[in-house]
Design a protein around this nucleic acid. Structure first.
Lengths: 358, 358
DNA sequence: CGATTTTTGGCAAACGTTTGCTATGAATCG
DNA sequence: CGATTCATAGCAAACGTTTGCCAAAAATCG
């Protein structure tokens, strides 16, 4: 018996709580209490236990603990299928902010990609229903659902980030896509621009609806017709931003009544569009003003430096974690709240008065 | 009893294996076998069990399973302190590739940041020693170590990625930093360049040592003195790439005997450097050729399109996972192997014959 | 100094699986 | 048709913790 035990020890796990107890000369339960609830145990005893634990290099087994208490300290982040964006650092920024915030609170981050295949969906559901995770932050645009199980009714605390799902009962932290684009457009109108090109994300996508909505609101406020804006793109996903920008450039070239300003809904679109404009000898901002969305760090070094609406990735990440932990700790009140963190337009050198006004 | 049981049910967990067994009219152990080892159970019985499981929406509890079998299906990736890079998509690319590959093999990815503080270090060690993770892929440049516990002797299968630690007994998958820079430099020499500016990462950093080493090797091969290259930077970390590029531009401006080619060791450095050159009216590649490192997607749309050595992030991620799974499944042979996946120089429009030769 | 309260320690059950062993029933063979 | 083998099901122990409950010891009070 002790032979096989020792063999197992060789192969695998380290010291057990029982070992610590024996070394310290106390019962297992005392060790457990000393580690979790230090004030419920005599200081001297606690000191002995701490010393023994350190001496043995003892680390409590997380799965045993999790099984017993029926909870884990793992939070899952559900990312959209492809993380691959051209210039944006939003995903790493969000990941980092969330991870740090979780760490401060004793949680660990697990990542899951939600692609279009059943496998990824099933995987996420298993994580949720199998008790592996304690809560989830969703960056994807839909909730996984398969064979009767759905993340939505897993009983798991959920927070949607980037996308407003508070209407569907999922507390959300978002940025004001609509308002930010409206204001940016308004300021272009204020400079004298009257004809716009809008580089769209995928038709029907939440962000595209919001951003284009903001554009239309700005036109309406200024008494301009909807025809003042030409919509380009709409077929490809945001991860194809460079391609969208390239196609939009062709689109632009083919227009007879040229717009004087473009609103791109991602930096990638703007960057590839600008590179094409350079080839076509369209002066920016002389001939054409540009403002885009995301606020990628690289915008500062574009030619010319690109004005962009910066998404507050870190603040959003922190807010999402705080809301999630709140929901985890108070399972009672499900507020389905919505927290809006404003984006900020960073004005650089791609915006000016239109030539016709100069 | 059944009251409190039902209450618990309300609050928390879903159906148990016992429920499935009852519904299917078999014993718990039969259910377990049917789910894990389908051929060890009568087909008819299995069908009943599967139906019952689906009907109840049963998901096995991962922690109970993990505790029993003494293993988890979680792999940890240890990322360096800051994920924040200006334009590079290496981190998301690696994450995605690793995550997908793990998913295919039934594993889950947990992420951990290794910062300079004890907290992050302790956290990682707890994950490793607490049985939470089954193996780890290291992107950070050191192994966490604290109070006698070290990732190195946790008994956990480890793979180092990006950085060669095979000498220290950790199997590694790396790219040939040295060779890639050597060849890029050689081809610049072939074009006639004789004076170089090298934009360095942090002094002593593995990558910087390798890349600068490659540079020197190329000079030596061509019979050029080491003084043919001016080293700029060395103080800041790669995550400060933009700043490094800016400072290098000032450095360049101050040089009397101007180099005709620059080798930047990250795209960020090259991008901000080029933006400064534009201001200073230094023509690229006319006055100055540039080649950089990373192969960020955005390089294609720089002004002018930037030549860069592309790191094979996805292949490396896949290779790292494969090596790790190999090590997990065959705990016997620890080969401490090293797998080198070559980088590839993408030539764009920042390289030409030096003016003096034109 | 005895009685009462407070503190602290120990026993054992429980968390939800997996799995070795045994028992049962079916099937095959002589 | 009985005996032997094989397939399949069931029992119960184990994984490493936490925690309710009780006992013992210490401290306080009258």
């Amino acid at each position: 018996m002790s032979k096989s035990r020792d063999l197992l020890r060789e192969e695998q796990s380290g010291p057990l709580m029982a070992d610590v107890a024996k070394l310290a000369g106390v019962a297992i339960s005392t060790v457990s209490r000393a580690l979790a609830n230090p004030d419920r145990v005599n200081e001297k005893t606690r000191a002995k236990i701490d010393a023994a634990a350190k001496q043995l290099g003892y680390t409590p087994n997380a799965m045993a603990r999790g099984l017993r208490v029926g909870k884990s300290n793992v939070v899952m982040i559900v990312l959209p299928g492809s993380l691959y964006y051209g210039a944006s650092q939003i995903v790493p920024q969000v990941l980092q902010a969330i991870n740090n915030r979780l760490l401060e609170n004793g949680y660990t981050l697990m990542i899951a990609n939600l692609a279009r295949d059943e496998a990824s969906e099933r995987h996420i559901l298993n994580l949720a229903f199998g008790g592996t995770v304690r809560g989830a932050i969703i960056l994807a645009s839909k909730l996984p659902e398969l064979e009767g199980r759905s993340l939505g009714n897993s009983g798991l605390p959920l927070i949607s980030m980037l996308m407003d799902m508070s209407g569907a009962g999922v507390p959300s932290v978002v940025t004001n896509d609509r308002g930010a684009v409206r204001e940016a457009t308004s300021s272009l109108i204020g400079l004298g621009h009257r004809r716009f090109l809008y580089l769209a994300g995928p038709e029907g996508n939440y962000h595209d609806v919001e951003r284009f909505g903001g554009m239309l609101e700005a036109l309406q406020q200024a008494g301009l017709p909807e025809t003042a804006v030409v919509r380009s793109g709409g077929k490809l996903d945001y991860q194809e931003g460079f391609k969208i920008g390239l196609q939009a450039a062709d689109h632009f070239a083919a227009l007879t009544d040229k717009p004087t300003a473009v609103v791109a809904t991602s930096d990638d679109m703007a960057i590839s569009f600008m590179s094409k404009m350079r080839e076509m000898a369209v002066a920016i901002p002389g001939d054409l003003s540009i403002v885009s969305f995301d606020g990628s760090p690289v915008c500062e070094f574009c030619a010319p430096p690109l004005s962009s609406i910066m998404q507050p990735a870190e603040e959003m990440g922190i807010a999402a974690v705080d809301m999630l932990l709140e929901a985890i700790e108070n399972p009672g009140l499900s507020s389905a709240a919505r927290k809006v963190i404003p984006s900020q337009l960073i004005v650089r050198e791609t915006i000016s008065v239109p030539r016709s006004h100069a």
